[in-house]
Simulated scan of single mutants.
Amino acid sequence: MLHTLGFLLACQLLGEITVRGLGVPIPGPVLGLTLLVLLLSLLPTLTDRIRPTTTVILANLSFLFVPAGVGVIGNLEVFSHNGLVLLFILIVSTILSMLAAVGTFIGVRYLTERWAK
C-alpha cells in the first residue's frame, strides 16, 4: 500500500515540478495525472499492482469530503448573511463551467474533423 501511495504522490510531485520549472500554464496535479495515465498505458502490469490500493482509496473517497463539510458548518454565519449571493454565484459558475465544457467539446470536435480531412 505504501509503495502505491508513494507512486501516486510521485506522479503528482513530478507534475508540480514540471509545471513550476517550465512555467506550464496547467495545474501540476493535472500533469501528474496525465503522467500516471501514460505510465499505466505503457505498463499494463502496473495497473494490476496498484489496483488493490486504489480500490480502497476510491471506496473511502467520501471521507475526504468531511473537512469541506466541517468548513461549511464552521462558517454558517457567513452562509446565513450571504446565502442568496453565494447560491447565485454557485449557479452562475456551474452554468459557465458547463458552457466552457461544451465549447471545448465543440472546438475539439471541429478541429479533429478538420484534421481528419
Rank of each mutant, 00 (worst) to 15 (best):
residue 92 V to Q: 05
residue 104 T to H: 11
residue 9 L to Y: 12
residue 105 F to K: 13
residue 59 A to L: 14
residue 88 F to G: 06
residue 29 P to R: 01
residue 57 I to V: 04
residue 94 T to C: 05
residue 75 N to P: 02
residue 98 M to G: 03
residue 33 L to S: 04
residue 27 P to H: 02
residue 88 F to A: 14
residue 76 L to P: 05
residue 45 T to W: 13
residue 82 N to L: 12
residue 91 I to E: 04
residue 104 T to A: 10
residue 85 V to C: 02
residue 81 H to T: 08
residue 92 V to Y: 03
residue 49 R to E: 08
residue 91 I to G: 03
residue 58 L to Y: 14
residue 36 L to Y: 07
residue 75 N to M: 03
residue 24 V to N: 01
residue 98 M to F: 13
residue 10 A to H: 04
residue 107 G to P: 01
residue 70 V to Q: 11
residue 14 L to K: 00
residue 23 G to L: 09
residue 10 A to S: 10
residue 114 R to S: 06
residue 16 E to K: 09
residue 25 P to W: 03
residue 75 N to V: 06
residue 75 N to R: 08
residue 64 L to N: 06
residue 19 V to T: 03
residue 53 T to Q: 10
residue 80 S to V: 13
residue 71 G to Y: 03
residue 111 L to N: 08
residue 60 N to K: 13
residue 75 N to F: 07
residue 31 L to Y: 05
residue 77 E to L: 00
residue 78 V to G: 04
residue 47 T to G: 04
residue 74 G to A: 13
residue 42 L to S: 14
residue 37 V to L: 15
residue 112 T to G: 01
residue 52 P to G: 06
residue 88 F to L: 15
residue 70 V to I: 15
residue 65 F to K: 08
residue 12 Q to L: 14
residue 52 P to K: 03
residue 99 L to S: 06
residue 41 S to D: 11
residue 89 I to G: 03
residue 8 L to A: 06
residue 30 V to R: 06
residue 33 L to N: 08
residue 23 G to D: 04
residue 67 P to Q: 01
residue 52 P to V: 12
residue 111 L to Q: 14
residue 25 P to S: 00
residue 21 G to R: 07
residue 27 P to K: 01
residue 51 R to G: 07
residue 22 L to M: 11
residue 15 G to E: 05
residue 97 S to A: 09
residue 69 G to P: 12
residue 9 L to V: 12
residue 117 K to F: 14
residue 20 R to F: 05
residue 46 L to N: 08
residue 43 L to T: 10
residue 40 L to K: 06
residue 59 A to I: 05
